[in-house]
Amino acid sequence: MASDYVLEAHDLVKRFGEFSAVKGVSFSIERGESFGFLGPNGAGKTSTMRMISAVSQPSSGTLSIFSLDPRTQGPEIRGRLGVVPQEDTLELELSVRHNLEMFGRYFDLPRKVLRERATELLEFAQLSERANDKVENLSGGMKRRLTIARALINRPELLILDEPTTGLDPQARHLLWERLYRLKREGVTQIITTHYMDEAEQLCDRLVVMDHGTIVAHGAPRELIVQHSTREVVELRFGTDSHEDRHLQLAPYAQRVEVLPDRVLLYVNEGDDTLRQLHAIGVVPTSALVRRSSLEDVFLRLTGRTLVD
């Protein structure tokens, strides 16, 4: 039974002194799926990533990775993992190729095998022409690709990506997504944290939303939208300074109304119908936009609009 899951976490807690970064989270990740962790800064994502990478030990709870215990079998587990950290941790003093080859040595792989794999991975990351350059001279996108290529040197069964595309331009992001799809097709299980909701919708089969150290929602991206938001969102602007007084007037026409400083959001099932109804009662906004609900709406609903840092 346990073998269906690559990873099983039950009631994981991570405490730093008095402070609890993770307050009892449970989840299971199936072989071959892409599993996402969403959450604002400080939600406990990175602490969770560190635990499931078998780097830091849970304060309590049970964790099993490949049906092994990270407390006692850390090296075996890490040998089968690929980890892409949030910030690049490349060896700035080594060349691109040597970064890959040296990293493979930590997994006790023979040099001959590593030379071949490095060549393959350089191709994969579109870095073949830069193989002998110092890492310092690479662009941000190239460093990120190299970091991902490096995480693949041991042919991991489970790839853990902590904000893999933060700071990348759209071209670089799309290239990365395409590479991650390819790996998924090859059967590599992936765990991804991200701030980008479009990324989560694109990449994740299932995901959890974390906030203040707990899981506040879980499911497939579409399921979460159905559960926590409406099908469509109408965005209205009235060109006045304050939209506060609109709340009462609009409330009967939507499942939920959210008044923001610059616009009013109506959560509804048929946006165009709602607009017609509003017209009928004489509500004429300066601009109106009907769009489908996105994961971002769910995310903001669950974790609030207040800036967390």
């Binding site: 780097v55 075996e76 040998g79 950290p85 490349l90």
Partner: peptide, 9 residues
């Protein structure tokens, strides 16, 4: 760079 090393065995 040590962080990366610790994600290996």
């Amino acid at each position: 760079a040590y962080e990366a090393v610790l994600s290996t065995p």
